[in-house]
Amino acid sequence: MVARIVKDNYPGHVLTEAEDWRQPYIFCCPHAGRDYPRKLLGQSPLPLETLRRSEDAYVDQLIPRFATEFAPVLEAKFPRLFVDVNRSPGELDPSIFQGQVEGADEFRSSRVVAGFGVIPKLAADGRTIYRSRLPNSEAKARLKNCFQPYHDALRSLVAKGRKRFGRVVVVDWHSMPSSALANGKLHDIVLGDLHGVSCDPREAELWQEAFAAEGFSVARNAPYAGGYVAGHYGSPDSGVSVLQIEINRRLYMDERRVARSRDFHRFTKRIEQVVDRVVMARAPGAVAAE
């Protein structure tokens, strides 16, 4: 599926409600959006093909279709280089905008300094996204129309899940470039729980065992431990776990062309098996608290 060039200056998100929410999971896909505002393409000297390499491309299509039978699925439709919902809203880079930017209280964070704040400055290859500075009103507009509605939806799901089950697990689906190394090794899957802070260790272990059982090599927290979603929502003691899943892109796509590989559909079957293992392991205890 190719990217879409849309007239809407601020694409939104899609929430697919569960047919029968019977498992304490929320599946999220924050970085696979491929609805590119025509306005954005006019602001950038980079071709669409280059911009797309910042996507967690096609991860939304890796989430099994049967997932919505038992859990809600939340997907951002806007691209991550337009608005990155896995960053704090305060991680704004003033150098992108004209004049003073309200709310840029985390402009010295390591992610902003690296060029990858909530509104990124750089594309995946390190090139500058914009040919000139944006109006400072653009920062507020993107947060209001893209970032906030996505997190309003997630926050509402978390509250509903806790009420229904007494606990909830946010599974945040991502992909990583094949150049990502953990201790000098290239892994198929990296599970991030902020080094045990954002997710119940039993839950993280359950997913690790399910991936390993399907023949995937799995690392924990290296090189990716989790971002804003894990840090902001994850509180196992309060009944909210967040587990970030990073999938090696070489397993299912051509990274240079941002295209699905010949093995894409076969790979989706493997991911289905992983999710099915987790669901079957959880089924006996997945009883609503209501």
Rank of each mutant, 00 (worst) to 15 (best):
G161L: 04
V73T: 08
S44P: 00
A182F: 08
T128H: 10
G115S: 09
I119A: 08
D172W: 09
A289K: 13
R65Y: 10
G239I: 02
G33I: 03
L41C: 12
Y58L: 14
I96V: 12
P94V: 08
G103Q: 01
Y36N: 13
G33A: 08
S110Q: 10
R270A: 04
A159M: 14
T16C: 05
V190K: 03
E91I: 05
Q244P: 01
A18C: 04
A57L: 12
Q148A: 15
W207V: 00
D172P: 03
L186F: 09
G115H: 11
I245S: 00
D200G: 07
H265D: 15
D125H: 09
S95T: 10
I26P: 10
A159I: 13
R167Y: 05
I271S: 01
V275L: 10
P89S: 04
R52H: 06
I247Q: 02
F78T: 10
A180L: 06
A288K: 12
E55R: 05
S137F: 04
P89H: 05
W207T: 00
V169N: 00
A3W: 08
Q61N: 10
Y150A: 07
G103Y: 00
S178T: 13
G33H: 09
H174C: 02
A104M: 08
V171A: 04
A114M: 12
K77R: 15
N183M: 01
T128I: 07
M1T: 01
F107K: 11
V113H: 11
M253Y: 03
A289C: 15
E69D: 11
R108K: 11
E214C: 02
Y233W: 07
V229G: 00
K140Q: 13
G115F: 14
L122W: 08
E55N: 11
P24F: 06
L191H: 00
D193Y: 08
Q43E: 10
N145R: 04
V279P: 06
V258G: 12
R162C: 13
A139C: 01
E246F: 07
Q148C: 08
D152T: 15
I119N: 10
A289D: 14
I247R: 03
P120H: 12
E205K: 14
G161K: 08
A139S: 02
R53L: 14
E205P: 06
D263A: 15
P149W: 12
P89N: 02
D172R: 01
I271Y: 00
L41W: 09
E19F: 11
S235R: 13
R167K: 09
P94Q: 09
P79F: 03
H265F: 15
R262V: 13
V229H: 01
G126D: 02
R155Q: 15
Q273P: 08
A18T: 04
A57W: 09
A18M: 02
R249N: 05
P30L: 04
F82M: 06
F97T: 03
P11M: 11
N86V: 03
E69A: 07
R164M: 11
S217R: 09
V242D: 00
Y10C: 13
P30Q: 05
S175C: 05
Q43K: 07
M280Q: 11
F211A: 03
R38N: 09
D8F: 07
T128P: 09
K269E: 06
